[in-house]
Nucleic acid binder design. Structure first.
Lengths: 324, 324
DNA sequence: TACGGCCGCGCTCAGATGAGCGCCTGAGGG
DNA sequence: CCCTCAGGCGCTCATCTGAGCGCGGCCGTA
């Protein structure tokens, strides 16, 4: 190539005409008085020699490559990997929330019924939802009092207000002291009304927790004894209160009866379930949830995405090579 | 686009499949269960939005863009613009020489007859000519003694030796004292033999000079009186001793009779005439030479190329915009 | 000198592609 | 409530493009 400057220049010229000016090979061939086959071969060599470099790069904060890989690997309808370091959880949650809002904006239509479960990352969702469609918004789980004061009721109301649709909220905790209390709570009119909406929810937004301390709102909310007993039943993760095993299948544990919120069946009935998950430590839990098929979309960050893609379920790092 | 992350990811995915994996649009459409028209539209938007960036860049020392533009603008068969600063003339000449060698390597076949005129830039040509074809090499012009000691005879011999073909050299100066002396010199057997070869030369390498002090070997070699008289005849440049006017047409000046070398007709008879030119000040001279049609290829450097392309013949800078 | 292999070239033809068109749907305004 | 308009979608058909093939020139070998 270095030894054939005239050919090099011709190749570059052809490449410019083809790639930058969008001319057809036939046209280029006619203009340069060479055969279209030669044009094709010159373009081939231009690609092979690196004369033509093609880069695909999203300018924004989404890692499109990892997103697409997640989508393929787990058969997801939606997968968003935000290109943000996980060092600052506040910033991370805000970006995850914005990404979720963008996805909702894109996929929720006026005839949908949107269900929201509690997830801290969703607290930032409101801002990005200007001009949202006026669809009903339903609270999927009971509330948990949090030090920062924001709660799922506020979230549901905020989203509903953004679109102008009705908000269906209820006042009940996520986990009741025992099954009897839970039953009583479920009979409250507001809780019953919201529960009646659940089967008609078409799009749900949920969080994923691992069955470990600090990685699950539910886990942290129950007594040590219950934590252990539930784990012995095979529970390794939970999807907004729906306890699941490593295969991602719902587990009917005694604890389930104490939880005020959606059931596995209701989750399965939704057209779209968007899960928001962050924290590398949750990798196995997230993998379980994805494999179980209850979740059709994932919104997460780079390091967790890489763990999901490049580490086997045994926790051993497999090929970390990027595609190709 | 920022508001449609799922679409963005799909677009990026499609772009990767199309541009990086070389899959057909139909194939991508089938795999992603979308129509091929959607694939086409996604690719369009990827191009328009800048998600896909295509760069064409020669890794070497040749500016392919300017080269191609020169080729188009002046209808040249060959145009090489070396991407070297013109600050150091020694480095510049070496690179021009190498580029010329590369071009010769590419275009000279065994049944060609190669003619070389004196040009300092050609002194570096020998090194790059390993494995040259064994074709005859003919000296086109008389010699000029130069302080650095290299001369056209040595050049011709070196190139001939590189290919293993015969060298046709002669001992005579480029400019004789008067027409009579020149006639006598031309009758020397070696000069006559070389001259007899001239009509069969198929590829010639020449230099271009401007009819000004310091910009032409011939100009500097003759008396002031002759310089002026020749200029008054319309001569503004010379192609290895062939005096031309601004239109690039040969001028029959008295001085022509004193020059031992090729004639305009002989130049016109060559299939390919490669001119080597450097120095921005020669821009007008080079433009004349190119417009005259005697030269079919140009080997030069960036700044001169830009002057040729982006400055009108009146010397006024016109649009300096790069293409597109 | 004759021969076989190699390489670059351009042909054929089936499959891929682009331009233009009409349909449908959804948003906005009377 | 209906009407209109814009935008997204996929169809058709003419054109473009890719894969494979055979030809002819070049080179090394016998």
């Amino acid at each position: 190539m270095t030894q054939r400057p005239t050919e090099l220049i011709l190749t570059a010229r052809v490449a410019r005409m083809y790639y930058l000016d969008d001319r057809s090979k036939t046209e280029i061939a006619d203009e340069l008085s060479i055969s279209r086959f030669r044009v094709a071969r010159l373009l081939d060599s231009a690609r092979r020699s690196g004369l033509v470099r093609i880069e695909i790069d999203a300018p924004g904060k989404v890692n499109t490559d990892l997103s697409a890989q997640l989508q393929t690997a787990f058969g997801l309808a939606h997968a968003i990997v935000v290109d943000i370091s996980d060092e600052d959880p506040v910033v991370l949650r805000r970006h995850l929330g914005e990404a979720a809002a963008d996805v909702l904006h894109e996929i929720v239509k006026a005839d949908d019924v949107l269900g929201l479960a509690w997830a801290r990352s969703l607290s930032g969702i409101g801002a990005a939802l200007d001009g949202f469609v006026p669809c009903p918004v339903v609270q999927l789980t009971g509330a948990l009092s949090r030090p920062d004061g924001s709660d799922v009721l506020e979230l549901v109301r905020r989203v509903a207000r953004a679109g102008g649709g009705p908000a269906h909220v209820f006042y009940a905790p996520l986990v009741a002291a025992d099954a009897t209390t839970a039953r009583t709570l479920r009979r409250q009119p507001d809780v019953a009304r919201a529960a009646a909406m659940l089967p008609s929810v078409t799009v749900g937004v949920v969080g994923i927790g691992a069955w470990q301390a600090g990685l699950s709102t539910i886990f942290d909310a129950v007594e040590h004894e219950t934590q252990q007993r539930t784990r012995r039943l095979g529970v390794t993760a939970e999807i907004s209160g729906v306890l699941i095993d490593t295969a991602g299948k719902p587990v009917n544990a005694p604890l389930s009866k104490r939880i005020i919120g959606l059931t596995g069946d209701q989750l399965a009935g939704m057209r779209t379930v968007l899960a928001i998950a962050y924290g590398e430590e949750k990798a196995d839990a997230v993998r379980s949830a994805l494999n179980g098929g209850l979740v059709s979309g994932l919104i997460t960050h780079e390091s967790l995405a890489r763990r999901l893609l490049f580490t086997g379920s045994d926790g051993v790092r497999s090929t970390d090579a990027e595609r190709r």
